[in-house]
C-alpha cells in the first residue's frame, strides 16, 4: 500500500478548473519529484493534499485512509507536512519560536523531533535562534520553513520548490539536507522546476503540465527522454 496516493483528483479555484484527474503515489521511504513549469499545478496539487484547497472529486489517501472532508490541521496531525513555496516563516517570531509553535504532541511518535534535534541537523538555525524570521536570508528562511514542518513529525514531507531563488551553493546544501531527512525516515514529495536538482535527490518523478500528469517514470528514464523534456519542461 502506498503511503500517499492520489486517485484522479480534480481541483478548482472558484470556477476555474486547475487539476484534471491527477493521480500519483508515493511509497514509504521514497523521494519522489513532481516536475513542471511555472503554473503547471504543482502547488495546487500540494494544496489539494494538505486540504487548503480540497479537491472536488477523486480520492486522496494517506496510509490507506481517505483524506476527504478533513481540515488542513487534521491532515497535518495525521502525518503530512507541508512546506509551502515562497518561504512563509512567521516574520514576527524568532527562529526558536517558529519551531516551537509547530511542535505537536497529539500523536505518539517513537522518535519525535525536538528543537535540539533540529539544531543538530540545521546548525545554522541554532546560531540564529534569537533572530526574527524576517531577519533571515533566503536560504535560512527556506531551512527554517523545512525545519518548522519537521517539528510536526510528518511521515511524508511535501516540499514546494525549495530550490527556487537560492544560490547554487545553498541549493547543493539543500540537496544534502533532503538526503539527511530521508535517512531520518521521512518520505519526501518534492515539487520542482529544476530537473537537475530532482535528479540529484530523487529516484522517481512525475511530470505535470496544465494540471494533468503527462509522464511518470524513474529519473534516469526521464533524463534521457528528450521528447518529454522538450515538450513539458523546456523553458
Amino acid at each position: 500500500m502506498p503511503l500517499l496516493d492520489l486517485n484522479s483528483i480534480n481541483t478548482f479555484y472558484g470556477r476555474s478548473h486547475i487539476l484534471f484527474d491527477v493521480s500519483l503515489s508515493v511509497e514509504k521511504g521514497e523521494v519522489v519529484s513532481l516536475i513542471g513549469r511555472n503554473g503547471a499545478g504543482k502547488s495546487t496539487t500540494f494544496r489539494s493534499i494538505i486540504g487548503l484547497t480540497p479537491p472536488q472529486s477523486g480520492e486522496a489517501r494517506f496510509k490507506g485512509e481517505l483524506l476527504r472532508g478533513l481540515r488542513a490541521y487534521q491532515i497535518c496531525r495525521r502525518g503530512i507536512g507541508f512546506v509551502p513555496e515562497d518561504r512563509r516563516c512567521f516574520p514576527d517570531l524568532t527562529v526558536r519560536e517558529n519551531l516551537e509553535v509547530a511542535e505537536r504532541r497529539e500523536k505518539e511518535v517513537a522518535h519525535p523531533w525536538t528543537v535540539e534535534r533540529i539544531y543538530a541537523l540545521f546548525p545554522r538555525l541554532q546560531e540564529r535562534e534569537k533572530n526574527l524570521g524576517s531577519q533571515l536570508s533566503g536560504g535560512e528562511q527556506q531551512m527554517l520553513t523545512i525545519a518548522r514542518t519537521l517539528m510536526t513529525n510528518p511521515e511524508v514531507l511535501l516540499l514546494d520548490e525549495p530550490s527556487e531563488g537560492l544560490a547554487p551553493l545553498v541549493v547543493a546544501l539543500l540537496a544534502d539536507l533532503i538526503g539527511e531527512i530521508r535517512k531520518e525516515g521521512v518520505t519526501v514529495l518534492l515539487a520542482e522546476q529544476n530537473l537537475h536538482f530532482c535528479a540529484k535527490v530523487s529516484d522517481r518523478g512525475y511530470v505535470i503540465d496544465k494540471g494533468s500528469v503527462k509522464y511518470e517514470g524513474t529519473m534516469a528514464d526521464l533524463l534521457s527522454n528528450e521528447e518529454v523534456k522538450e515538450k513539458y519542461l523546456a523553458v
Binding site: 481540515r71 490541521y73 509551502p84 514576527d92 509553535v101 509547530a102 511542535e103
Partner: peptide, 24 residues
C-alpha cells in the same frame, strides 16, 4: 506561552498555521 506564540503566528499567517496542525 506556547498558545501566545501560536496566536502571534496565526495573526501573521493564518493559512500556514492551519497547515502546521493548529486548530483554527
Amino acid at each position: 506561552t506556547k498558545t501566545g506564540k501560536v496566536v502571534r503566528a496565526t495573526s501573521s499567517d493564518r493559512e500556514m498555521a492551519d497547515a502546521l496542525g493548529i486548530n483554527m
